[in-house]
Design a protein around this nucleic acid. Structure first.
Length: 461
RNA sequence: GGCGCGGUGGCAGAAUGGUGAUGUAGAGGACUGCAAAUCCUCGUAUCCGGGUUCGAUUCCCGGCCGUGCCUCCA
């Protein structure tokens, strides 16, 4: 049985993954807050954990992958106020768009995609358990986690409580017993979304939702918890504090999740994407102009823990690669598939801490073999190697070749068609001068002609 | 200031204590009326200085540079 090796943020080491229950691997990854379109940083997280789930499924009989939707959050309230839309209209809308956009990237929907608002009861129960055990207290309608009650706090991010306080740049609320204490539950004004609780009408703090949803859908402890690197502190640190302390596991940070996996950031021009820099790129926009698979391939082109510097050119580069791959598959249209498992060179690369660049190298070799050998085995190895990466999932006939393909107007299609017909006639009469003129004319219009076995084709350049 | 990550060919990006993948871009050639695609060939790539070693891009120490977290954030 092949083994997966994964870098565990909690131990800061690459470890051999061994499931708590080999018959059922359980994974949780923090999903998006749905108040806007997903940017490519959100997409990187979704792609990385989709890939992890794929890899786990290729070696274990059952995998449950849970990734939540955060549909209660102050940012959503702000968005609702600005747009005048109802909160649940916004969250449902962007949840749907998120799932559509991720589907375009070949991301399968998680096995469970719980909504925070549907787990309020569980969150309240967690708060009560924490209060009972002396790890939390109620104050002025809030429930706060008392950080000094948990000496192991900070083990994930490698940050002592003192360091955290020293670096704090926010004013400490007067009702906090300790400056490091964080909110589990907070009161809502009548115009804010809220639920009845033992502490009055209120809403959850950010961190408690993932503790509640992970526990409910996976049970504790579970195998792998993941998310973006920026969630390590405070979000994941606080999840650990809540979930360990609620069940009397104050000494064992692994009592919540055994392994922690964090993906690196997407940068643009070498800097982290941020709204203030205006360098946010939305998946929704990018997939208008290219195949989502090209974006997926670009997002996997660096190791998941490294920063990924993104650019439009990078999408184009991987679009060209995928064009080549699909062209090979097109040439092998008549070659039947055979039933095999994922080729070793690819899966072994992925089992080594999801080394996607290494897997790409392996896939390129398989592509070359498929192209040259044209055998069912070579074709299937290539195809399956791509599939485990979430690539080569489309029918060749549906693949849109070319780097950019904005919508072409009806008039353009007619003009191009007549020029192509004229050029075919000119070629037949050996009037290559006229044929070349037509090539230049189309080039001036922004199209390149490719003569293929099926006849000439125009491609937007 | 505290903690962390990284610096490999034009670009992207693996790996490794001893021939430095792969992709993309570029150059030359084959093929094609021309293109495209495909095939062949090519490129003085491991930030700097010390140390350990028979041997360091890899391990250690010190620099320099870049970047991230410490506040909402994938």
């Amino acid at each position: 049985m092949p083994k997966l090796r994964l870098y565990n943020s909690l131990t800061r080491e690459k470890e051999e993954f061994s499931p708590l229950d080999p018959g059922h691997v359980r994974v949780y990854a923090c999903g998006p807050t749905v108040y806007n379109y997903a940017h490519i940083g959100n997409a990187r997280m979704a792609v990385v954990f989709d890939l992890l789930a794929n890899v786990l499924r290729s070696i274990y009989p059952k995998v449950t992958y849970v990734s939540n939707i955060t549909d209660v959050d102050d940012k959503i309230m702000v968005a609702a106020k600005e747009s005048g839309e109802a909160i649940d209209a916004i969250t449902r809308k962007f949840e749907t768009i998120y799932n559509e956009d991720m589907a375009a990237l070949g991301v399968a929907k998680p096995d469970v995609q719980p909504r925070a608002t549907e787990h309020i009861k569980e969150m309240i129960a967690l708060c009560e358990a924490l209060i009972e055990r002396g790890h939390a207290y109620a104050a002025e309608g809030h429930v706060l986690f008392n950080v000094p009650s948990f000496p192991a706090y900070g083990g994930l991010s490698g940050r002592s409580r003192d360091e955290q306080i020293a670096g704090a740049r926010v004013d400490v609320a007067p009702y906090k017993k300790d400056p490091a204490d964080f909110v589990l539950w907070k009161p809502s004004t009548p115009d804010q979304p809220g639920w009845n609780s033992p502490w009055g009408r209120g809403r959850p703090g950010w961190h408690i939702e993932c503790s509640a949803m992970a526990e409910k859908h996976l049970g504790l402890p579970f195998d792998i918890h993941g998310g973006g690197a920026d969630l390590k502190f405070p979000h994941h640190e606080n999840e650990i504090a809540q979930s360990c302390c609620a069940h009397g596991n104050e000494k064992n940070l692994s009592a919540f999740a055994k392994m922690w996996v964090h993906n690196g950031f997407v940068t643009v021009g070498g800097e982290k994407m941020s709204k203030s820099l205006g360098n946010f790129l939305l998946v929704h926009d990018l997939i208008k102009d290219t195949e989502g698979e090209a974006l997926r391939m670009a997002l996997m082109s660096a190791h998941y823990r490294q920063p990924l510097d993104f650019s439009i050119e990078k999408i184009h580069e991987y679009k060209r690669v995928l064009d080549k791959f699909y062209r090979i598959l097109s040439d092998l249209g008549d070659v039947p598939d055979v039933e095999i498992s994922v080729p070793n060179t690819v899966i072994e690369s992925l089992l080594d801490d999801l080394n996607t660049p290494k897997a790409y190298a392996a896939l390129n070799l398989l592509a070359k073999e498929a192209q040259q050998e044209k055998t069912p085995l070579a074709k299937s190895k290539f195809l399956l190697g791509g599939r485990v990466l979430g690539l080569l999932k489309k029918n060749v006939s549906d693949w849109r070749f070319g780097v950019v393909f904005n919508e072409i107007t009806h008039d353009e299609v007619k003009a191009i068609d007549s020029l192509l017909v004229e050029r075919e006639a000119a070629k037949k009469n050996k009037d290559f001068k006229r044929a070349d003129e037509i090539r230049d004319e189309l080039k001036a219009m922004g199209f390149a002609i490719e003569d293929t076995p099926e006849g000439p084709k125009a491609r937007k350049i």
